[in-house]
Design a protein around this nucleic acid. Sequence first.
DNA 1: GACAATATCAAACGATTGATTAACATGGGT
DNA 2: ACCCATGTTAATCAATCGTTTGATATTGTC
Lengths: 224, 224
Amino acid sequence: MTFPELPHDTRSRLIESAILTFAAKGFDGAGIREIAKGANANSALVAYHFCGKEGLYRETLKAIFARKSCVVSELATIPPAGTPGARQAALQGFQDYIRAFFTELVSCLGSDPIDEAAMVLMAREMQAPRPASAPLLLEHLKPYVDHLTHCLQVLRPDLDEDALFAMGVSIQGQIIHFKNSLGIIRLIRGNPAYPEDLEKVIRHHIDFSLRGLGVPEAFPQPRH
Amino acid sequence: MTFPELPHDTRSRLIESAILTFAAKGFDGAGIREIAKGANANSALVAYHFCGKEGLYRETLKAIFARKSCVVSELATIPPAGTPGARQAALQGFQDYIRAFFTELVSCLGSDPIDEAAMVLMAREMQAPRPASAPLLLEHLKPYVDHLTHCLQVLRPDLDEDALFAMGVSIQGQIIHFKNSLGIIRLIRGNPAYPEDLEKVIRHHIDFSLRGLGVPEAFPQPRH
DNA sequence: GACAATATCAAACGATTGATTAACATGGGT
DNA sequence: ACCCATGTTAATCAATCGTTTGATATTGTC
């Protein structure tokens, strides 16, 4: 559940503190002295270990990506379109994907605060990527995009590339937005512990996405 | 298309420059000297006119909200549930809403750079609201939430409050995410001018939302 | 034990931050 | 002509920024 190196050497402690501090205050808002203090280290060490603040930020993102890269790869690979059973596999793979993606993003809320902060940082980076780290982000996102795109292709072979892409963006979008705007959502609802039944929310996202995608199997009338 | 006061007094010029600079660099990244320079004004004037940087930021958000508050109020009010014709009106009102919301958020891309920056700022504020300005944001968002919720109630009277709310979040989410992540989306597609046909994207969002919502009328099979 | 490489430290660097000050201009009000 | 309120300015404030420096531990090697 925690970062690879248990020994917790200074370098790792700095990165952990950086995740927390950058997530809480942003790149400009977080000072290296504050980060160092959070790691019980000297502020001069970020220059020594990471060649400066920007380097620490880059290495922080790398650590987050390395930690999260396994999620999508754990999903079953679905057979190519046309193969018998591909449609059924894609249908299941699609649901697994949403559940995994949602869990990675949202379900970590009560668990490790570092995990939580890491997701805040990643969300911020997706919305306004620091130019130096945009390639890193792209590379990390690619497997997700590929997996989802493949599922969609199998489920809606009649759509062209543009339409498929739009579907993918919408499906990812509702989940990412749910995570990003949880603060506002709780304010609007007036309930600081809003998603009380997480499973219910996940099922909603799956159902909504399948219907939105236009998969016939998902649309036996909800009103019966 | 521009801000109310044409005279462009120093105060207004400062706010305009603040919109651009805060949007580009964030609250901490933007310096009052830089903002002042963008307004051809002295940096001491932000303390004089706005009681400091935080006050300038608050007043900047107010200006943006005042400028955008009209969008939802221009939509036709739909009759209460049960009234004859309510369903048809809600169906139309729902589509108008998505179109209006999408246009406000995304369509300003080629137009006024201040409009564009204002939306960037607002998106950032929705994701991570500065504590002092959260009430402002909530008040501005309320009409949107109310309008959408009312439409959903009419279209899906069988759902409970939780389910309706989840629907609203998903629908708003895909649009907001589309706007927020346009940068990454363009990188992924490798096309810096991605939404070449904006109308097509709007129609996708309407169709996806209606199907996702589970409105029977919206689901005559897309595969014919 | 001597040596060199790696880590860590306190201290100070110059630059920049937001805020403050006092002087100065401007324009009615009397 | 005098006065006061309103803007505006350059200069300066203390504080903090990220970075650099030189000295000091720590470690492994011969």
